[in-house]
Structure formats: structure tokens, C-alpha cells
Amino acid sequence: MIYIITGHYGSGKTEIALNLALSLTNPIIIDLDIVNPYFRTKDAQKMLVREGIRLIAPEFANTNVNMPTLPPEIFGALESENDVVIDVGGDDDGAIALGQYHKYFEDKPYKMYFVINKRRPLTSNSQDTIRLMRDIEGASRLKVTGIINNTNVKGETTAADILDGQRLADEISQITGIPVLAVSGIRSILADLKTDIKKMPLDLYLTLPWERGV
């Protein structure tokens, strides 16, 4: 199966992509981010190597140049029998990079997740969020198959934030008919959360230098 993770930047796509990849058997993870210069899937390279997960990332990711070239190995990955997780960077601009691969999805099943975070200013209501989702679908030439509520304000997230995000996710689902597949967040908060939606507990891998311990 090919899993495509989309959403506004700051929605938490990369953490979800990493956690999803870790739950699969022998997956390939693709860092398709052509927008963000740093804080991306490739940051977790050491962990991925340790876990035996193959990472395909733009050749110049995390270097000193802006060179949004995508490696040809992506074609091979999409033709393989492996599970593939694609972390699509940025917003609809980032999703343009995905559009070139759309022919691979014409007769192959895929799951495209749209990650929402109500605490991000440009996706705090259903109108703006649906517009962004449609823009991403247009740019990628693919259809969103499920919504993940990943509402968070990093370390200050409360259960109330997540439930507030759940109302937004439900509203978007009602308007668009796209199902809400999961609610994600750090384990300690999700554990006590009362919800009927499937919980997707996350371990966080993208850390700042001062969060990594001495």
C-alpha cells in the first residue's frame, strides 16, 4: 500500500509519516518536501537507519543549498511491492511535487491522509482547511481518502485542544464526506482521551538541539 501524508506545514505530517512507517513491515519512506529547508523527514535519518527503514530524500535535503530535485529512486519505490509512506512537504505548493507521479496511482490503490491541526492559524476553520485540502488535491491530482486530527500546540497541548480539533475534523468530514480515520497525539494525552475515533499515539522524532539531552 502507498500512504501519502498531506496537510498544511505545521500540521505534524512528518511525525505521522515516521510513526506510520515504524508500524509497517519493511516500508520505504519518501521525503518529498521541496518547500521546507530544514525540520523534515531526513532529520530522522539516524533513527530510520537504525530501524532498517529505507529513506529516499532529495539529494540536497539538509545541505546548504536550495535544490528541490527529486531522486529517480522514487519511481522504483512506487513500482515495488513494499509499503511506501510519502511525506509531502508544505501545502499545495509542496503537493505539486507529488503530481508528477499521479500515473502510478491510476490503477494502484493508495491512501492519502490529510492531517489537520486546528491550532495552526491558516487551518483553524473548516472553510480555510477545506480550501487547502482541495488545493492539495488539485496540485497532486489525487484524492484525499481520510482525515487525521493531529491538533496540537507542541508541549503545551491539552485534551481540550485535541477535542476542539476533533469538532473541526468532524465538520470537515460532514461537508466533504471524507471519513475521519484517526486522532493522533503524544501517548500521555491520548491515553485519557474519551473518543470513538481510532487513536494513533505518536513518538516524536523531530527535536530541537536543546531538546536532545546533553
Binding site: Y9, G10, N117, R119, R120, P121, S124, N152, V153
Partner: peptide, 15 residues
């Protein structure tokens, strides 16, 4: 007001 999650660059622009 609820806190929001912002990138430094966005925060400068909004502020």
C-alpha cells in the same frame, strides 16, 4: 485566547 502553533517567520508576519 487559545495559543496557536506558529513558525517563527509566520509569527513575525502576523505580529
Amino acid at each position: 485566547m487559545d495559543k496557536v502553533l506558529m513558525k517563527g517567520n509566520e509569527a513575525i508576519a502576523e505580529a
